[in-house]
Structures are given as C-alpha cells and as structure tokens.
Design a protein around this nucleic acid. Sequence first.
DNA 1: TCAATTGCGTTATGCTATAACGTGTGTCAT
DNA 2: ATGACACACGTTATAGCATAACGCAATTGA
Lengths: 135, 135
Amino acid sequence: MTAPALTKNQSLVFDVLSRSDAPLSAYTILDKLRDHGFRAPLQVYRALDKLLERGMVHRLESLNAFVACAHQEKECCGGHGHGTVAFAICESCGHVVEFHDHAVDHRLDDWARERKFKPAKTTIEIRGLCEQCAA
Amino acid sequence: MTAPALTKNQSLVFDVLSRSDAPLSAYTILDKLRDHGFRAPLQVYRALDKLLERGMVHRLESLNAFVACAHQEKECCGGHGHGTVAFAICESCGHVVEFHDHAVDHRLDDWARERKFKPAKTTIEIRGLCEQCAA
DNA sequence: TCAATTGCGTTATGCTATAACGTGTGTCAT
DNA sequence: ATGACACACGTTATAGCATAACGCAATTGA
C-alpha cells in the first residue's frame, strides 16, 4: 500500500511550500507557479487536496493558508497523517511552528468520548508573537 | 468601566446570532437583516468586530462563520472575554458546542512559555459528528 | 468652538474557493 | 482488443468571504 508518486502539479506545489518559511495562500502559490504553466486556482487547489489527504501539507484555518508538514514521512507519531497537529503562528514575522502535544490530544479525546462526539479533524492554532518579535 | 450599550446594528446582529442554533456567515446575517435596512456586508462586519472585541460573539475559523457566545456576562471564567474557548462542530447537523478546558489551556500556555511565545488568540475547533448524527 | 473619535452608509474592489464542462491516460475485467 | 471506470488535468465562469476608501452625522471633551 505504498502511496503512488506525486503528479507533476502536486510536486510543484509541494516544492513551493517546502521552500517557503511562512504559510502561503493558494493564490500566492499560483503566482509562484505561473512560469511552470499554472493558469488557474483549481490547479493549485486540486494539488493541495491530495497533499492534504496524505498529510504532507497542513491548512491553517485562521489564515486561509497552507504549510508543508514539518515532519518526515516516518517520524514520531507514525509520520504524516496521524495525530492532531498544533501550530504557533507569529503575527509579526509570519513564522509558524508545528508541534504535537499528546496531553492536549488526550484531553480533547476524553472530552469527545464523554459526549459521544466523533472527531474527524481537530484544529489548534495559537496566534501571537514569537520570541524574536515579542522583544 | 461598564461597557457602552450596543448600537442598533450591533444589537440586530447579536440577536440574529443568538436566535440561531448553528453558526452563520456574515452574508447570511446580512440576508436576515435586509428587512431591517441592512444593505452591505460592511454593516455586518463592523458590528461583528465590536461584538468579537467584547467576547459576545466567536468566530469559527474553520467555517468562516460566527456564533453567539454560549455563556452569560458574568459566568464561570470571568464571563466574556477570558480564557480560551474550544468548539465541537458537527459537520452533519451544523450544531456547535462551546466549551472550556483548563487542562488544555494550561498545557498550551506551558508550551508557549517554554518557547517564549506570546499568545494573543488561540483557536481550538473539533470537527466531526455529534452523538445524534453519528448514530 | 474646534478637534478627535466613533458609528454609519455606499460603492467598489480584492481575496478565497468551487461548479461544471470537456480532454487525455492508464487500468483491468471481459 | 474493447469498453467501463477512475483519475489527473485544463479552462471558463461563478460563488462566497472580507476590506478599502470615500463622505456624512453625532458625541465628547479641551
């Protein structure tokens, strides 16, 4: 059950996100890929959908933007696609730190179980100022 | 330092949200208030901004929608505007449950303190199926 | 009185995301 | 082989979310 190789468009989008040190909107990605033949938002959104499915990319709901997953394929919690991811987003420099916290995950799982709520996807985003920018 | 009374537009928007049992987008609110003289999105967004400032309304980042705060002015954690709020959102029926969890808050606070990150606003949203809809 | 602040209304615009159509390609059971 | 299917792709158009920029009116306070 090895995942199929990325298509050309998926690779291009993933590369752009990987090289960026801040989240990018779909339209910013589009602009960066015009030289590679991208003409329409859908080309970006379709690639993003697949990358999100694989857990190779995350969506930041509070920014309507996307980042490459900070972890490698086989790392930590089983690699891409497992566990809840949390983000600390600096509102000054735009830098994003991705992290996992099992205690938080457990706590939210417990809350859900008690209420028989079936979680599909959990979003945790802390917006604020990073150490550099808070100084 | 009592907060000033709500203006007419702010009251109208808050009432619409209070009466709804699911989150509403700004444009849906606009439609519901056309009979009261609302003509443009900005009238809604400006009212929402003030209501968000007061903590009387919350924004659901993963839905681009808004809900009235589930708690009363002087309740629990100091009432509106204190502590981090979390949401469980049913993707089937649209119902939203607002809750606070101090353990989660602490854990995220600790994470931030260790990294000298200064949180401004934290978003926690669990999307899934409520007990009714999961059956 | 004058300046500053705040809310309001309007028009226009920009950003984010998806619908709906058709094309080409590969797989695979028949 | 052939037909059915799944999937990626490209294009045009449209829907949905949010703000910029202008001007007016009312309020406050030095």
